[in-house]
Design a protein around this nucleic acid. Structure first.
Lengths: 244, 244
DNA sequence: ATACTAAACGTAAAAATTACGTTTAGTATA
DNA sequence: TATACTAAACGTAATTTTTACGTTTAGTAT
């Protein structure tokens, strides 16, 4: 039986969702989408790739199929290849049944992603996809090596966050200094000094202050800023790129 | 015909070799190990993995089989998965012939490595393996997407070099400040100010000055230093790790 | 003795970091 | 209408790091 799946390669996606109030979360789905088994078998969104599919296409497709989330930033961050990683007999049986092929060994390519949590309704994720957001420090036992994949994903995210302008994927076009601060704190998992943070950000030429302010807040209204990605690239490339 | 190869997954290794005089080089082999075809088809050491083999084991094995180099530091740095990456008909035919299996599509996991060039005799590499070191800015057209793999490998190496203590893999146990400087310059591809470099390094607690100096040189003999990896880890982990 | 070489030390200005204190512009409430 | 409250925004002074240089030192070679 040829299902079109590549029996050796899968993708798994760690979707980090940011929420102003509650910080960073991860999206998990139920292994058995429609059943309400107890205990539930939770996992990352992921699946075998289609034979000749590009990995990034595969990741986008799988994510949409399993969670409805589409067209988002995805970053390949590691490969998990332990030949024993699918060792759990029951979960392996489920994988063979659900994919319709004999599984010998699967190498998975892991992606992480950053999304604005409020863009995706909890109710729809839950009802249509049996998917839910979990706090980072409250993640249950997952199938296969998915706990390890999340841990590594978070570690890479934190490293890349220091050199890549990732926070702007989680912010509206116009954002305040405090929003930027809170995201940085959530992702890095540390507290930052408000005043020193402002000073550091103000030196960055690619974060541009606007003459617009918050309205209707019960305190001094905050200024809005925008991120100029062209300026960022220009500076990052050491002024060697041509800006048309 | 079951050759034991996984028809979908390969490893390729970018071996960077450092040489005090000539800087950074890359090890390339001939596609056709024993023939002296003209023009030669050059490539990175790499091959399909064995069905249930771990990727890192595979990389070590393949490297030893194709170049004789063994037990070295290898770092997974990227996945190359373009479904058209093996497009070249002649090279694809060679791959099918040499592996003995029908190739549909191969995703390759790329590793980079750092070795002391003088550890590997040019003659033996050349005679026994038809392998040669090439200067980074003098790399010919390679098969498949191997030029792209090298470019990406170098880019990742340069990034990781800034935060990981990679240079000590290229230095003898006891090294001089100038050796450290030259490696840094070679890898980063830029010139560094000798005096400011010394100052910066001297601040690092994990680079330890010895009371030993060069002998028999026609100038002020240089002090030797050693790298204390335990101290480095201790400091890097933010003093939270237990040192027994 | 003198020249030569790379190693090693030094210095002063500028920039960035750190650890704090103070003022400001708005809403809420008494 | 005055006062309280809140987060935003500005400020400062000490310390550390970076940058761009100049000078001295310890050896061999001639």
């Amino acid at each position: 039986m040829n299902t079109g799946f590549n029996p050796h390669i899968s993708v798994d996606i760690v979707v980090f969702g940011f929420d102003d109030n509650e910080g960073l979360k991860v999206l998990l789905i139920n292994r058995d989408k429609d059943e309400q088994k107890h205990p539930a078998r939770l996992k990352l969104p992921g699946s075998l790739i289609i034979i000749r599919e590009r990995l990034s296409d595969s990741a986008q497709r799988v994510l949409q199929e399993l969670t409805g989330i589409k067209d988002i930033y995805l970053k390949q961050f590691a490969v998990f290849d332990n030949p024993e990683r699918l060792k759990d007999g029951e979960d392996l049986k489920w994988l063979c049944d659900s994919s319709g092929i004999m599984i010998e060994r699967v190498v998975t390519i892991a992606y992480y992603s950053l999304v604005k949590l409020h863009h995706y309704s909890e109710t729809e994720l839950s009802k249509a996809f049996n998917a839910r957001w979990y706090n980072l420090d409250d993640i249950p036992d997952l199938i296969f090596d998915h706990n390890e994949i999340i841990a590594e994903g978070l570690s890479v995210l934190r490293k890349e966050f220091l050199t890549e302008p990732l926070c702007f994927k989680l912010l509206p076009k116009k954002f305040t200094m405090n929003q930027l601060l809170h995201i940085s704190e959530s992702i890095l998992g540390i507290e930052l000094d408000n005043r020193n943070f402002r000073k550091r950000i103000n030196r960055l030429e690619y974060i541009i202050p606007l003459n617009e302010h918050q309205k209707g807040v019960a305190h001094k209204p905050a200024r809005y800023y925008i991120f100029d990605s062209r300026k960022f690239e220009f500076i990052k490339r050491g002024h060697t790129g041509f800006i048309i």
